[in-house]
Nucleic acid binder design. Structure first.
Length: 782
DNA sequence: GTGTAATGCTATTGG
DNA sequence: AGCATTACAC
């Protein structure tokens, strides 16, 4: 292969993109405007590194979501082949460093099988600390305490440093929360005793590890000779320091970002990181990608006009060669429900007129709560959709309950899991006993599990009946723990759901919600079964680390499955076999990095977008504006912007005014569409008039499409009312069927009487599955 | 200790 | 409106 063929992919890039790809060594910053081919450059850059002979073992690429990592890896595989790229480390900060911490945990005093607490766990722990300390939850709002602690950790301020920081301590005193530092200290101690880390600890402790163990630092510096960071504008200080440390030896560091799309400052992201970058690497090469390939001229110009209102930005001129395109359509409606109907109708019409598939449409909103009116309207018109975000599968109560048993079996000291399941299903260990146990654990500075497991050592005044129940519970958990190493993930998971009594408890609940929960557990078990069958993926770690993995590889264990569960989000996975041709509904935040031909930005109203909470400070308002910029630049062909005159909030009707951001778009780019019967001319800049005219008759209410008790289809979890499956009554051997997850298959056997019958189906590519006909999402196709 | 009825609070954004 | 916590009866 001659050089030209070898680097053929370079011809697919423009001049600046090529330069950015070819500048392999040293510090590189790529400022990438929206739609400028950022992902393509990053992908090709990695492919190029491999092509010029750099070992994939030496490359680390940090992305913003797991999904982005997966997609990028696939694209790289297509260019260089998966053998070349096999040892690439690519993932989110959290997943990559969680993985490293698993191997190095003992060096910082944590067990290898440490538990990752998600936000719910963390807040629950904070609540119990507040209670124990006698602090009023109305003053010390758990959410606020959590974000305060989180901010401290993201700035690498440990509890001791927190106490010594006069500024912070003053702030806390001023706001009437002088005990915050104590809460932080206790919180951290409890996490440690529980062998648990929250999300921020994954980064914080990585910093501790690299700071205190130069041998470890040296090892990973040597491994990761080439480091790439995507969405750099959204990294926080803690992440910044990690990257800086790792890159210190070879200084081959490439960051990609767009300050105009920085939308996570509320989470500690720091735009300073981009500015610091220039200081840290004086030889920095900077490339600006300014040509937009994604959107029409109208969209690019409109977005530029909006972002120009921000004071703080890195100057760049995003432009495009694309056609002028349609004007932005402005929809104004009388109510949130009508807004939904108009959007749904517009999607319907556009899909007809332009032969557009449903997957080409996205509805973006500021808050998750806005999805409801959109959902109802889409259902009414039979337009398939999927909601991203909201309560994810792994956050559902029944799933968390089961996972808590798994977690407790893996790490007995996990206090949050213990509290969750010690009396679920009810086994007579009530609140008073639990309080006593917690108290004893605190007094003796040990874990709750140690108290339970050594009841006789602690004189805590629990009667013998309860003591026996506790003993039984401890024995049960120990029996699960004992099976961990020798049983495969699916078998153990099934064993635990049965022997813990959870499955039975849910089975006895015949309400639609109960049936749905039962089915979700089955869904979880299916997922674990797939994981078991696929096998644990090989992990490449420097030298010696791989050895202790050798023995375990014969079976896939439950702790392997649980390792990353806390880090999964709704946007990851779970899309495999589902219908992809659907309209996407999500928040603007969740839409970052995505693109759609037709985008609907809904709820463009003051106090909603921009959010009410952002109106007090300029920086917050500027972040909202960047968020709007992100929304606009998701679109390729056409944007619809809508707002409603009234909207339900907490069950009350409130009146709304159009967002100031609408005015920031030059009116040349906007076309107002009014419904035929309200041909009134709309004045964009002073839209008050339409709102002063109050709605005389109640706004058209979309009739609920499902009866009150039926659970809506949301997220990846589908609920099937058992009665809906009557058509499966006559299912017989040999029939062709279609399943939502597994695709098409053939019925191998049917046993039992409907509705309690069970079918065995051979699915193409998924093997045989047993399905309960009452619940199975099956369609007979032949 | 357990289960249900009444109350009260919430909804930025998310790994 | 919906959910979580609390109050109260068993």
């Amino acid at each position: 292969m001659n050089e030209e063929e070898h680097f053929a992919y370079l011809t697919e890039l423009n001049e600046v993109q090529q330069q950015a790809v070819k500048a392999t060594d040293g510090a590189v910053m790529i400022v990438a405007g929206a739609g400028s081919g950022k992902t393509r450059v990053l992908t090709y850059r990695i492919a190029h590194l491999l092509n010029v002979g750099i070992d994939s073992f030496n490359i680390l690429a940090l992305t913003f979501t797991n999904k982005a990592a997966r997609e990028m890896k696939e694209r790289i595989n297509k260019i260089v082949g998966d053998k070349e790229s096999r040892n690439l480390w690519m993932g989110t900060f959290h997943s990559v460093f969680a993985r490293i911490l698993r191997y190095e945990a003992e060096k910082i005093g944590y067990p290898t099988n440490f538990t990752i607490y998600d936000t719910d766990d963390a807040k629950s722990l904070i609540k119990s600390i507040l209670k124990e300390q006698g602090l009023d939850e109305k003053v010390y709002k758990p959410n606020l305490v959590y974000s305060r602690i989180s901010a401290a950790k993201n700035n690498l301020i440990a509890p001791a440093a927190y106490f010594q920081n006069a500024q912070i301590m003053d702030d806390d005193r001023m706001s009437g929360k002088p005990k915050l530092a104590d809460v932080y200290r206790i919180y951290q101690n409890r996490l440690f005793k529980s062998g648990a880390m929250d999300f921020d600890d994954l980064l914080f402790n990585t910093n501790v590890l690299l700071r205190d163990h130069t041998d470890v630092l040296y090892k990973y510096q040597n491994k990761f000779r080439y480091i790439l960071v995507d969405e750099y504008q959204d990294t926080n200080f803690s992440q910044y320091v990690i990257v800086k440390q790792l890159a210190a030896r070879f200084q081959n560091i490439c960051v990609v970002g767009d300050d105009a799309q920085s939308i996570y400052a509320f989470r500690g992201a720091n735009i300073q990181n981009i500015l610091n970058f220039e200081k840290d690497y004086p030889d920095l090469k900077t490339f600006k990608l300014e040509q937009n390939y994604r959107s029409t001229q109208t969209i690019v110009e409109a977005a530029n006009a909006v972002i120009a209102n921000n004071r703080e930005q890195i100057k760049k001129q995003v432009w495009t060669d694309n056609a002028l395109g349609d004007k932005i359509k402005l929809l104004q409606t009388l109510s949130d429900n009508e807004e939904g109907m108009q959007v749904a109708h517009s999607i319907f019409e556009t899909s007809m007129q332009h032969q557009a598939k449903h997957e080409q449409f996205a509805i973006l909103y500021r808050t998750n709560a806005q999805s409801r009116s959109m959902e109802e309207a889409l259902r009414k018109l039979n337009i398939p959709y999927r909601i991203y975000g909201g309560v994810s599968f792994y956050q559902r109560k029944e799933i968390k309950d089961v996972l808590a048993y798994f977690r407790l079996a893996i790490n007995n000291h996990d206090e949050e899991s213990l509290k969750r399941v010690i009396n679920y299903p009810a086994r007579g260990i009530g609140d008073t006993s639990i309080s006593k146990i917690l108290l004893a654990a605190n007094d003796n500075d040990t874990s709750t599990w140690n108290v339970l497991d050594n009841m006789h050592l602690f004189n805590i005044g629990i009667n013998s009946g309860t003591a026996q129940k506790i003993y039984d519970f401890v024995t049960l958990i120990k029996s699960f723990s004992a099976m961990l190493g020798s049983t495969n993930a699916f078998d153990l998971a099934e064993h635990i759901t049965q022997h813990s009594g959870v499955l039975k408890d849910l089975y006895n609940d015949k309400t639609p919600e109960g049936v749905s929960r039962y089915e979700n557990i089955q869904e979880l078990l299916n997922g674990i079964r797939e994981f078991s069958e696929k096998g644990n993926e090989a992990i490449d770690l420097p030298e010696e680390e791989n050895e202790n993995l050798g023995e375990q590889q014969s079976i896939t264990t439950l702790d392997a499955f649980m390792k990353d569960v806390a880090l999964l989000t709704d946007a990851d996975g779970k899309t495999d076999n589902q219908n992809r041709n659907v309209v996407s509904l999500m928040t603007v935040h969740a839409a970052k990095g995505l693109e759609f031909p037709y985008v609907y930005i809904v709820g463009m109203e003051e106090n909603l977008f921009p959010s009410q909470l952002s109106l007090t400070s300029r920086t917050d308002l500027e972040e909202e504006r960047r968020l709007f910029y992100v929304a606009l630049t998701r679109a390729e062909k056409r944007i619809h912007i809508s707002y409603a005159a009234t909207r339900y909030r907490w069950g009350n009707l409130i009146h709304c005014e159009p967002s100031r951001f609408i005015e920031e778009i030059n009116s040349n780019y906007i076309e107002t569409t009014a419904k035929p019967e309200q041909k009134r001319q709309i004045n964009i800049s002073g839209t008050k008039n339409i709102f002063e005219k109050r709605v005389s008759k109640p706004a058209e209410q979309a009739k609920p499409l499902v009866k009150k008790n039926l659970v809506h289809v949301r997220n990846a979890v589908t609920t099937v009312n058992p009665a809906d499956n009557a058509h499966l009554k006559d299912l017989q051997k040999g029939m062709q069927v279609e399943h939502e997850r597994f695709g098409s298959g053939r019925v191998v056997a049917v046993e039992g009487e409907y509705p309690n019958s069970k079918a065995t189906v051979e699915f193409d590519g998924h093997g045989q599955k047993q399905l309960l006909l009452k619940f199975a999402k099956l369609k007979i196709t032949g």
